[in-house]
Design a binder for these strands. Structure first.
Lengths: 150, 150
DNA sequence: CCTAAATAAATTGTGCAAAATTAAATAAGG
DNA sequence: CCTTATTTAATTTTGCACAATTTATTTAGG
């Protein structure tokens, strides 16, 4: 079996493992997030707002590596759920500022008591959580730089 | 900063790194796959057919961890592109068998001469490709088992 | 000033992703 | 046989994901 053959075998393809792992992790979060009426990408937006405070749409996109075409409808759903507000920047009317409502702020406390279970469950089974985290973060950084140096 | 606080920081969230890395890798493959008129999930279906030969829809789903709601329209597009055929199983008319056309078979050779570039590019930047692959495969296995033990 | 370029977000269109429902066919027990 | 449960795929619906285009605004050059 040549090296060229091997590279088309699913078991050897890091790209497939990452792609499938991403969906399985989302599946793992779903039953918990469902209790709060959140999807996984919506949850990540909340995480960024909790950590960094009020942000523009493009700042959210920079952190999450998502574009406005994805974020705009997602943010509208979070606004309908009254977890965030959206308003035009007064200084620069091209920008839309996104911030947490009281309900959005208080959600963090509620989730900390539940979400730990997912995190610790993965930690428990993942014997080397920190090692895996460092590997994937390095991969993300490399892929991000490769994909954007046109 | 408490351990509970830290778990909501984006930099510490393995789930986010996996999710973002998956999209960045797909973005990396896109310009190459575009030349062949394939999307990334379509490419993965072709990889499975090249490796394992003719398969039913559910066999493809088992390998790729995708359900029929995702695969059925995707397979129809591959059929329209004349890379695969689909037909009801003669033995069991519930099953739909998927197989490669001549065009689909020959695509593998064409891609081997181009796709290597993506693979080697990632290998080059990823100092520890095999280590990362093993970590992510272990994570995938754990997440898959956790997500399905109801 | 005033026009041209650049920026920021929204809009549009295509293609996954997955849960829920439906429909068809098979298998199994009585 | 015949009914019931199971299996398998299709269909439907909602929600990302992203490229391409459009619109509005701001910045810079002349």
């Amino acid at each position: 079996m040549s090296a060229k053959q091997e590279m088309f075998e699913l078991e050897n393809m890091l790209c497939f493992s990452i792609y499938a792992a991403s969906r399985e992790i989302t599946r793992l979060y779903r039953p918990v997030l469902d209790k709060f009426g959140l999807t996984y990408p919506q949850y990540l937006v909340m995480v960024v707002l909790w950590e960094f405070g009020d942000s523009t749409v493009s700042e959210l996109g920079d952190k999450l590596l998502l574009d406005s075409g994805t974020l705009t409808p997602l943010l509208k759903r979070l606004q309908e759920a009254e977890l965030i507000y959206r308003r035009r920047s007064t200084g620069d009317e091209r920008k839309v500022e996104v911030g947490l409502t009281e309900k959005g702020i208080s959600l963090k406390e509620q989730m900390m008591n539940v979400s730990k279970d997912i995190f610790t469950e993965l930690c428990k089974t993942e014997s080397n959580y920190l090692q895996t985290l460092q590997s994937v973060k390095a991969l993300l950084k490399d892929a991000h730089e490769l994909a954007r140096r046109e």
